[in-house]
Every structure is written in structure tokens, then in C-alpha cells.
């Protein structure tokens, strides 16, 4: 029996020395392998008597089961330990900053123009464009602004040469469209326009969107309807608006459209000059003389036109207080839109 006890002590000594899965494998081979300790012992049993075989065999077998169980326990423990270590090694600090994809930004003017176009396209308007360097005829004459007309004072014109100017508004597109097609007309035309002005509230180039709708039986009330839809889409359903008589040589009656001041909510502030209202666009029924100029019969058709300043709308929409911001192209500005 002493021999069995000795064996157990020897085995325990081996098991204690196991400190990794590798040493486990080699100890396991040493003890349970084909040429291991137990294989040896079993060889020796063969030489014993039947009696002895029985007793000794049982003890050896018990010892083997014991060894196998212990090895298994050690293995589970080691595997557990290894898993824990691996976990520790692959740990990440989830509070580190993520890697944001780098995308650019559209200039706010483009953004606002797109929004305006989208609204009018949904109302059945087509988008057309015209030249930025324009004949005096299209920019003024055909729009009922002859050369001695006081309205020319309203617009400081850049001149290129006799009869050629930088367009001061997008309205000449109206004439070009009507000259090229018969009614009905339903167009909008965005683009750059130019005026000889450069200060805190004016830039020599800015953007407008022109609109024109001509057909049989178009009414002033329709103008109110279409522009009301537009303003509600652009500034929200709740915004108060008003149509106010004004003057443009190419429309009659003419109407300036104001919205309730988005800064002070109509109470009166610096931006709305204490009126509670902000001018947002000019509009009116197309002047019969303009129809005659393009060969339309004002007895047959009526229509309305409107023009809106893109920068102005962008400024109100985003609360920008200096129009020149649009043209510095400072990335700290553009990246906000």
C-alpha cells in the first residue's frame, strides 16, 4: 500500500508543477500516455498473481481516475485563466473618439436655392435659366423700364458696353421664356444677379429666384395662393404673412410680401426696423405692356411673376446678420450648413 501512497505523492507533485496548458499536455503524457507512468504500472500488474492483481489493480485504477479528474480540473482552470487573460488583452476604451466619415457641405446659398426649387417644382413649375450678361433690352426695356424711367435708379447697374449690362435681376428670363413659347407658362429661374453696391448689407453679386405663371384666367388671388403655399413650406405653417402694395414697372398690381419678423416674433426689433415685418419677396400681376412686348395678348391671358432674394431668405432662415459672410467662404461658416 505504501507504494500506492508514494505514487500518489509523486503524481500530486507532477500536477502541482503544471502552470500552463503546454505543461499540462506534457504531464498528461508523462502520466497517462502510452509510455507514461500508468502504462508502466499496468505492465507490471501483468506480472502479479491473480490475488495481487485484483487488489493492486483496483488501487491503480482508482489512482488513474483520480489523476484523470485532477488533470481535467486543472485544464478547466487553466483554460478559464487563459480566457481571462485574452479578454484583458483585447479590451478597448469605448470612450475614445470614433472615426467620423469626412463629408463636405453645400454652400448655404445652394442649399436655399434647392429648397426653393423643390417647393415650386412640386407646384408644377419648371426650372429654366438665362444669361448673366444680358442685353439692356431684356433687363430693362422689355420689362417696361425704358432708359429714362425713374425705376432705373432703384438698381445700380454694372455696364459692359452699349446695350449690354450685368443683369440686375432674374426678371429678364421671363421675357426670354415668353418670347420662346406660347402660354401657358409656369417657370422658375434661379441665378446670380449683379448690382453696383458693396457694403454691410449689399454685395455686388447676389442670387435671386424668379417665378412666372401665365395662362388664361390667372388671378391676383392665385398669386396670393401660390406664394402663401411657398412661404408656409419655407418658413412653417404658422408664420404670419401679408401682401402689401408696392411698385415694379413690370407688374401691376404689384405686391411686396412680408413675413412676421422671425427674430422678434412681430414685437418689433432692429432687424425688422420696429415694424414687426420682414420683406421677403416682390411680386405682382404681369403688366399688360410686358405681354405686348413679347407678343402675348393681355386681353387673352393674365399672369403673375415674383422674385425673391436668396441671401435674404438664407439670412432670415439661419439668423445670419452680415450678407458678406456668404462670400468669405470661411470653412468655419460653410461647415455649419
Amino acid at each position: 500500500m505504501n507504494e500506492i501512497e508514494e505514487l500518489r505523492l509523486k503524481i500530486d507533485g507532477k500536477l502541482v508543477s503544471i502552470n500552463s496548458l503546454e505543461s499540462l499536455t506534457s504531464v498528461k503524457a508523462e502520466l497517462l500516455g502510452r509510455k507514461g507512468l500508468f502504462a508502466n504500472l499496468i505492465d507490471r500488474i501483468k506480472l502479479l498473481s491473480k490475488e495481487e492483481k485484483k487488489i493492486y489493480g483496483q488501487s491503480i485504477n482508482a489512482l488513474k481516475v483520480y489523476t484523470e479528474n485532477r488533470l481535467n480540473e486543472i485544464k478547466i482552470g487553466l483554460e478559464q485563466k487563459q480566457k481571462e487573460m485574452a479578454d484583458k488583452a483585447s479590451w478597448i476604451d469605448i470612450t475614445l473618439p470614433g472615426k467620423a466619415p469626412l463629408v463636405g457641405k453645400i454652400h448655404p446659398i445652394t442649399k436655399v436655392i434647392s429648397e426653393i426649387i423643390e417647393i415650386f417644382v412640386s407646384l408644377g413649375f419648371s426650372v429654366v435659366e438665362g444669361p448673366e450678361i444680358e442685353l439692356d433690352y431684356y433687363n430693362f426695356e422689355a420689362l417696361n423700364i425704358p432708359s429714362d424711367h425713374p425705376a432705373r435708379d432703384l438698381q445700380d447697374t454694372f455696364y459692359i458696353k452699349e446695350g449690354v449690362v450685368l443683369r440686375t435681376h432674374t426678371s429678364p428670363v421671363e421675357i426670354r421664356v415668353m418670347e420662346s413659347q406660347l402660354p401657358p407658362v409656369r417657370i422658375i429661374s434661379p441665378g446670380a444677379v449683379y448690382r453696383c453696391d458693396n457694403d454691410i448689407s449689399h454685395t455686388p453679386m447676389f442670387h435671386q429666384v424668379e417665378g412666372l405663371m401665365v395662362d388664361k384666367g390667372i388671378r391676383f388671388s392665385d398669386l396670393k395662393g401660390i406664394l402663401t403655399i411657398f412661404i408656409h413650406e419655407m418658413f412653417g405653417e404658422d408664420i404670419a404673412l401679408r401682401f402689401r402694395p408696392s411698385y415694379f414697372p413690370f407688374t401691376e398690381p404689384s405686391a411686396e410680401v412680408d413675413i412676421c419678423c422671425v427674430i422678434c416674433g412681430g414685437k418689433g426689433c432692429r432687424v425688422c426696423k420696429d415694424t414687426g415685418w420682414l420683406e421677403i419677396l416682390g411680386s405682382g400681376m404681369t403688366n399688360p405692356q410686358v405681354f405686348r412686348n413679347v407678343g402675348y395678348d393681355p386681353e387673352e391671358v393674365t399672369g403673375f411673376a415674383f422674385g425673391l432674394g436668396v441671401e435674404r431668405i438664407a439670412m432670415l432662415k439661419y439668423g445670419i446678420d452680415d450678407i458678406r459672410q456668404f462670400y468669405y467662404n470661411d470653412l468655419r461658416f460653410i461647415s455649419q450648413f
Binding site: P184, K224, G225, I226, F243
Partner: peptide
């Protein structure tokens, strides 16, 4: 008064889109 003029939508049919 412009305020007293109603708000309507045009009666004309849809124009072909360009």
C-alpha cells in the same frame, strides 16, 4: 385692401414639365 383679396390656387391645368 390686399388683405381682403381671397387666397386661391390657379384653376389652370398642369403645364408640361420641362
Amino acid at each position: 385692401g390686399y388683405d381682403n383679396i381671397p387666397v386661391t390656387t390657379p384653376r389652370s391645368p398642369v403645364v408640361q414639365f420641362r
